[in-house]
Design a protein around this nucleic acid. Structure first.
Lengths: 237, 237
DNA sequence: AAGTTTGCCTGAACGGCGTTAAGTTCGTGG
DNA sequence: CCACGAACTTAACGCCGTTCAGGCAAACTT
């Protein structure tokens, strides 16, 4: 009998509808308007119904976050597709950063949900992202960098760490810009995008793009290399 | 008569007590526990009383943010004081970044309030920080960089932009680490601090620290330099 | 066909939130 | 002594996330 299968399908469909309602609400009205009641009203169900499909708000928002990462991936592939044939791995990496910043500007609601502490009201500080933080996308960036390294385009000791650093660079500038802390320095989105471009360019130079063989003074910067020691402990709960 | 003056003093004292209660509550219990009611309970007043001293929660939190920036400044000066006499401007800049990261690890509650959208429930995306975003500290960093540039330690076109980029770099890594997105890559605070160190070092290389005269291939990276054009518009409300 | 079970859904409530209007207390100035 | 005004509280409003007893129709059983 296909009845239980139909039910299962309908159940999944409604579950999907809920996520979509939350996603749209977030895009259209911002994070502040994302309440269980408003979501319920949008899908024309009672608020209590949502709890038959999601354990709590966090789980629902988690699904929205997942959708956000997929959207980010779309931005990335689209930005990459704009590149000319001659683009090298470095150009591809720059395009990825550009896509990241553009995504954030277009979907700041998503951006907040994805990167401010997920639980929103979570107490312990370093929040756990239930492991779904787009492993694919990051891995692809790492692979791109590894490719560049092999091609002699950059001389960096650990591509993985380099990728993290690049992520931090773009993410930090974006986050600061969106939260208004760069308001005095940056006045328009175009100006901001130019900043991103310049920042990534600087980073490239640091990684040895275009240089023969980097100096890499590893042991230098002798003094004060133990980092904070005691106090650094307390940060983690 | 000194009566009105005494009253004014008392008024200011209570106002200060409220801010301190909020600050402590934030440090001890996290952002989620920072409610008007809990603050009121801590100072043993009715919640309504707070509204005689602050227009709304945002204004109160704004004061806490101000306190947070002062604390950040303390971290910075303390970190700078650890440097040996021989430290150059580059070392000082690195110390500033280190202080920033250490501050965030020790006071993640502060960090959230300071850099996630201040209003917390604000609708329009790029929040305005009422202009109180520690102008001093940032200016001092800029001055430090300018000094380094004059000493020939780095060859960067615009120190101000360089400072912003450096800020973004450290802020982004910190933000990602605190929100758990670097959980798979970084496992301890020490590891994270080392990452910060490495990141700043890479950035230095990019800025030409220790190089004679940087190449600065300004016009290069020919293709796709108009940044996002159309879509970038919509991000701002 | 009738009765029973099952699964989906809701109304109403709980406690907590930010915020406000009305009311109380009380030291002060006329 | 009285009236004013400042300081403070009580009680409520309308949000929020969440839970639970109940209703109701579709599906199964006999």
């Amino acid at each position: 009998m296909g009845i239980t299968e139909r039910r299962e399908r309908e159940r999944e469909a409604l579950r999907q509808r809920i996520v979509e309602a939350a996603r749209d609400l977030l895009s259209e009205q911002g994070l502040g308007a994302l309440s269980m009641r408003s979501i319920a009203e949008r899908i024309e169900y009672s608020p209590a119904t949502i709890y038959l499909y999601f354990r709590d708000k966090d789980e629902l928002v988690g699904q929205v976050v997942r959708a956000g990462f997929e959207r980010l991936r779309d931005y990335t592939t689209e930005e990459l597709s704009r590149l000319p044939e001659t683009a090298d791995a470095a150009d591809q990496y720059a395009a990825t950063g550009r896509a990241y910043a553009r995504f954030a500007l277009d979907n700041c609601g998503y951006f907040r949900v994805m990167f401010e502490l997920p639980g929103s009201a979570r107490i312990d500080c370093p929040a756990v992202t239930d492991g779904a933080a787009d492993p694919d996308a990051f891995e692809r960036v790492v692979a791109r960098l590894e490719e560049a390294r092999r091609a002699g385009l950059l001389t960096v000791p650990d591509v993985r760490r380099a990728a993290v650093i690049g992520w931090g660079l773009v993410h930090g500038l974006t986050s600061l810009y969106l939260s208004g802390h760069l308001h005095e320095e940056m006045e328009s989105n175009e100006e901001f995008m130019a900043l991103i471009e310049e920042a990534m360019h600087s980073m490239y130079l640091g990684w040895g793009v275009g240089q023969e063989a980097a100096v890499r003074p590893a042991g230098r910067r002798s003094a004060v290399h133990r980092t904070g020691s005691v106090r650094a402990e307390t940060g983690r709960k």
